[in-house]
Computed example of a mutant assay.
Amino acid sequence: MPPVLDADRAAAIQARLDAQARPPGSLGRLESLAVQIGQILRTEAPRLQEPTVLLCAGDHGLVAQGVSAWPSSVTTLMMQGILSGEATVSVLARQHGLNVQVVDCGVIDPLPEQPGLVLRRVGAGTADALLQPAMTPEQCRTAIRNGREQVASLPGNAILLGEMGIGNTSPASLLLARLAGLPIEQVVGPGAGLDAAGRQHKIQVLGQVLERHVQATEPLDALAALGGFEIATLAGAVLQAALENRVIVVDGFITSSAVLVAARLQPAVLERCVFSHVSAEPGHRLMLQAMQADPLLQFGMRLGEGSAAALVWPLLESACRALNEIAPLEKVMARGA
């Protein structure tokens, strides 16, 4: 995958910003965001078109080991809430004019067909990774291919990554520990509400999972052994979106784990990624550091769903509008001549 960072284009975009009727650099991070978006879209006048929140959902066999405060059935309930427009990401997406596409990558209790729901099921939840690989190699390849195909079918030039899956902070933690070489106790957090004892149990279980799959060190091997259907689908989505030079807005810990896998396969995907925030989930900061990513916000959020990606979307739009619509200083000064 070729890089999109282009020194000449970046300089040309920055020159346009510096020539505007305001002190150079006065928009701070908004300027560097405009430069990045322009490079991703390969134009000095970037415009974001038809963005979609791609929200991938899946269940996890590892939940049977008590690593989550909630049962897997909640995944399906939350998917329905998103499709009904009642969930957090639904509200934020509606506010900002974002399309939301919920992809069933493999939940245990599937929903009936309805508007906004896409069926890309690989199975009824992954296997219990403490007992066997979470996915077979073929399931992992299928999920990645599903993500690629789903992105290829979307209009526009931007996707926002979202996810839903009870227990999916566990595979995200496992992938971070394995691919970044970090101790599991450093990366494990409370997820969706574990207390201190629950977190210690989670650390113990995930440590055993890593020991069981000690040979799974390459990105795809680790993804199959430790990951989830929704994470693998998102990894495929990231690879395809990057190949098409779409802007990729990354949400939190889970979606970042998919980006981590994709980046280990194709490092240039990171040039196409805008990281929305750093989550309160402790592993997320370490994951961002592993990718040398600089998130836009630190709001203490840890919800997932794509909520932070939707929240920062207006910043991306503002960056493009500021670049394209603020008058040059020369034009303003000419009015007084």
Rank of each mutant, 00 (worst) to 15 (best):
L17Q: 11
T75V: 08
E325K: 07
A242H: 01
D294Y: 15
R141M: 15
L130Y: 09
P46D: 01
E163T: 04
I159T: 01
Q204W: 05
V269D: 15
N324F: 13
L239Y: 11
W313V: 12
S307W: 01
V209R: 04
I159H: 01
G116N: 04
A57K: 00
C140S: 15
T88Y: 14
R264W: 15
E138Q: 11
L286D: 15
L226T: 12
H213R: 12
L111G: 06
I254V: 13
L77R: 02
V259F: 03
A322R: 09
P46K: 08
R94L: 15
V151A: 02
T233P: 15
A224S: 05
A7D: 09
P295V: 06
N245G: 01
P219Q: 10
H96Q: 14
L160W: 06
E330L: 12
I108T: 07
A124C: 12
L286N: 03
M1N: 09
I203T: 12
V103C: 06
Q65E: 13
L33W: 01
S276Q: 03
L243R: 08
V122G: 10
V250N: 02
M333I: 05
P328N: 01
L243Q: 09
E138P: 07
R94S: 14
A309M: 06
V205G: 09
S279C: 01
L226Y: 15
G123I: 00
L316M: 03
S84M: 02
A197K: 00
S170W: 13
S72T: 10
T43D: 09
Q80A: 13
V35L: 07
E163I: 06
P133T: 13
L176V: 13
A322G: 03
I254A: 10
L98T: 10
Q266F: 02
R121E: 12
K331C: 12
D6H: 14
L206N: 07
Q215H: 08
G236N: 02
A268D: 15
K202S: 07
H201M: 02
L131A: 13
G236T: 06
L131P: 10
E281V: 10
A158Y: 08
S173M: 12
A19K: 00
V67C: 06
T126E: 10
K331I: 08
L220Q: 12
E317C: 05
G85M: 05
G58C: 06
A237Y: 13
E230R: 02
S73Q: 06
L260G: 00
L160R: 14
A232L: 12
M287C: 14
D59Q: 09
Q95Y: 13
N168E: 12
T255H: 03
V122Q: 11
R302F: 01
G156H: 10
P46T: 03
E271G: 14
Q200E: 11
E230D: 05
L223P: 01
L234H: 03
N99R: 14
